[in-house]
Write a protein that binds this DNA or RNA. Structure first.
Ligand SMILES: [Mn+2]
Ligand SMILES: [Mn+2]
Ligand SMILES: [Zn+2]
Ligand SMILES: [Zn+2]
Lengths: 169, 169
DNA sequence: TGATTATTGACACGGTGTCTCATCAAGTGG
DNA sequence: CCACTTGATGAGACACCGTGTCAATAATCA
């Protein structure tokens, strides 16, 4: 599929700087905007891709590829599983989706959190809150000095129980 | 297998406090010590488990379960795949192994880094350095205040190229 | 030693991500 | 508006991984 320089990145990889303030609006782009974005990147705007985009932008919490497949097949039974997987990776590569890890270790996607973000993910219902305050950057300085590694990126997820999922005391 | 209160933890989960100084010696325990540790935890010391322990303690970098299976089967062809998987989880539950994520997202184990640690993992050769300076704890305070999540733990891995794997400039 | 019971290993199973390849359609230029 | 080119699709097979089952086995202990 020609996913330029994206395949070999680690899952949930975050690199580069960003000092965006926290708690911004979800800022989910419109389907039309995403379609245009794909074209701008040299990809084609196809019916299956538009179907995936429409499905994905409507979601407010992390979802797996298989969930998208199952949901899409109710409306578009002939859509291919591989196409969904490919499109999700494509959307991640253009920053429409970002990859997160669920607390069980299974990978998932979440819409609308571009840039250098991390996620606080509910271990129970999967709800996620993005945050941009990343405490790793200064650690990286010390690590590269002490270990002589050249540091490429990092993976940070925080797990907990969202207010709705906490047992009532 | 009765892995008490361990199964449902997220992979590469780290919780609890620790202010151990960095750069300590690997402190890999001896096979005998591990055997005794298992007994002390109420598990049996069996031949397959001792074989896994011997294999695992000799390794200086992260390894996957399948790598252990393949390597062990050269000497002990009859060892079961499930037994290796079970023993690795068992060893992780008693802190002889810790789980790390490789930069490709695949889970692996590494010996001899008990307590609250994270790892700097080489994207190329897989070599890992543990560090205990965890910058997440103070972030967690702000997150739980702002989001009302009750935070359970976090996952942090740093990726880079170790000195040997860096392209010569 | 014999009873008890955790552990083993063979096997099958489900889920997941990848790959191939023939077919199709989006985009382009005439 | 119509080919043509080439990326994209979807069917299917496949490999890999982790798990569950269960009868057989072996570790522990009275
Ligand atoms: Mn970060
Ligand atoms: Mn930590
Ligand atoms: Zn929740
Ligand atoms: Zn290396």
């Amino acid at each position: 599929m020609l996913l330029r320089d994206f395949e070999d990145r680690p899952l949930c990889y975050a690199s580069g700087m960003s000092q965006v303030p926290d708690h911004d609006a979800p800022s989910v782009p419109s389907p039309e905007h995403v379609a245009e974005l794909l074209v701008r990147h040299g990809y084609r705007s196809t019916a299956p891709r538009r179907a995936v985009v429409a499905d994905v932008l409507a979601r407010g919490r992390p979802f797996t590829a298989e969930e998208v497949v199952a949901n899409l097949r109710q409306r578009v039974p002939e859509i291919g599983r591989a196409t969904v997987y490919r499109t999700l990776e494509l959307l991640a590569s253009v920053d429409v989706l970002s990859r997160v890890l669920r607390s069980d270790g299974h990978p998932a996607y979440i819409a609308g959190t571009p840039g250098h973000r991390h996620h606080l993910v509910c271990s129970d219902c999967g709800a996620a809150v993005a945050f941009s305050a990343c405490p790793v950057d200064e650690l990286v300085r010390d690590l590269s000095r002490d270990t002589r590694f050249s540091i490429q990126g990092h993976l940070l997820e925080v797990f907990g129980l969202c207010p709705e999922c906490q047992p009532t005391v």
